[in-house]
């Protein structure tokens, strides 16, 4: 990466202002940005904006954008809530070195198709708070065309939902071929499928089926089949669309069964 100017704004408005200039980018952990040979005019470092936090407020968990993956993974919040699904999800990603570097902000704002954590956050019905765009559901954020904004924090309701996360990889340190997160609250399921290989989606048809059925292996598999036919899948160098569809069935089934255990 070639950077001309590197700035550490002291307040959010200043950061937002800088971001509107030509070839300006926010630097989170910088791990993903570093992969490309980018020419950056203004690099905006958010480290002076107090965005490195994990806290509980008014029945919500708040995760600051500059929190590293590793900090979140090892936090008591992640370990003790939602069946530890956040810790479990994050520990699948590469090694501790990367997780000490990459931030939650970069991971969510990057909206990577292969993302593990986005799928899990989506199942937990997380919300994002943007500097300009304000607060919106993660689901909406993934669909909107949002440009040149700053992700400030993620919030997740403390609603004690149960959750499970399952992924499939060609090898343990590779990207997911597909990943599935399922959460359940008051016997209602939320099923999300990521790395299709496109961005994670909520499998509504599968949800409405399982929410109106008695849950057992058979119906769970049926939900998986519905998800695999109603969501779109593609092929890339890791797997074909066809295989992803097959995996979707099995993994959705397994995640549902894990959640009701």
């Amino acid at each position: 990466m070639n950077i001309k100017k590197y700035l550490r704004p002291l307040n959010i408005d200043e950061a937002y202002g800088l971001l509107q200039s030509k070839n300006a980018v926010i630097i989170g952990g910088g791990a993903f940005l570093n992969l490309g040979n980018r020419e950056v005019e203004t690099a905006i470092d958010l480290s002076k904006l107090n965005l490195n936090f994990i806290e509980e407020k008014n029945g919500e968990f708040l995760i600051g954008a500059m929190t590293t993956l590793r900090k979140l993974e090892t936090s008591s919040f992640a370990k003790e809530n939602f069946d530890g699904v956040i810790t479990k999800t994050l520990s699948c990603i590469m090694g501790v070195q990367l997780r000490n570097t990459a931030t939650i902000g970069g991971s969510v704002y990057g909206r990577y198709g292969f993302s593990d954590i986005i799928t899990t956050f989506l199942a937990l019905d997380a919300e994002v708070e943007l500097c300009n765009g304000g607060k919106m559901s993660l689901e909406k954020f993934l669909e909107e065309k949002i440009d040149r904004d700053i992700l400030l924090k993620i919030s997740i309701k403390k609603d004690n939902r149960k959750a499970a996360y399952i992924n499939m990889r060609n090898s343990s340190a590779d990207f997911s071929l597909i990943n599935v997160a399922v959460a359940m609250k008051d016997n209602r399921f939320r099923i999300c499928v990521g790395a299709r290989p496109k961005r994670a989606k909520v499998a509504y048809e599968a949800m409405s089926f399982i929410n109106s059925s008695e849950v057992n292996e058979e119906t769970a598999l049926r939900a998986g089949e519905i998800a695999s036919t109603t969501l779109q899948f593609g092929g890339d160098i890791r797997a074909s669309a066809e295989y992803r569809k097959e995996l979707c069935k099995a993994l959705v089934k397994r995640a549902i069964m894990e959640v009701i255990q």
Partner: peptide, 24 residues
Amino acid sequence: SSCGVCTVLLDGMPVPSCSYLAVK
């Protein structure tokens, strides 16, 4: 940041020095 060979400790935590901006 895929192999850990370049690891250094930053405030005691392992980070990949090949991908960690010095200014950070």
